[in-house]
Design a protein around this nucleic acid. Structure first.
Lengths: 74, 74
DNA sequence: CTGCATTTGTACGTATGTATA
DNA sequence: ATATACATACGTACAAATGCA
């Protein structure tokens, strides 16, 4: 039986695709973690985990109190 | 042959020893459940179970969103 | 300067599903 | 069947940084 990918990875992968397609442009601000949670119908904690995943992939950067932004393409 | 103790008890016992030795002083904050998991190479859920064990032993107390702390010596 | 709202970041507590022994 | 263990997920709570009225 196929093991389903976890929500946080599904969300991270989807956002990564949007970044790579240009839908989210370099320098652009992403929706807040709470909004991402709503958009994908997951808890904020799960949405945050997805964001942390993208940060680990060096696709985004963020600052406390501001938001998360798409990193410059390398 | 001795039945091997479960991980959660091994972790709890080790932390209890650190509390009794003074390495973790009364009032001091313990590492987070996640950190304990990493320190002992167990899952967070197992680390949390160890912490619950210590709570049952009245050695620690904790507050959601803050952390766990060493109880005052009786 | 002083609150207040927004947002990231951290952390607990609980629950579920799967796997294993 | 029962206990252990891991990974995931949700919800809640609070701290910290930032910006703005």
């Amino acid at each position: 039986m196929p093991t389903r990918p976890p929500h946080y990875r599904r969300v991270a992968d989807d956002i990564e695709a949007k970044i790579r397609s240009g839908e989210y442009a370099p320098g652009q601000q992403l929706p807040s973690v709470s909004d991402i949670g709503e958009l994908y119908s997951v808890a904020r904690s799960t949405a945050y985990r997805a964001v942390k995943e993208l940060h680990a992939r060096n696709l985004i950067y963020g600052q406390q109190g501001q938001g998360v932004f798409v990193a410059e393409a390398k």
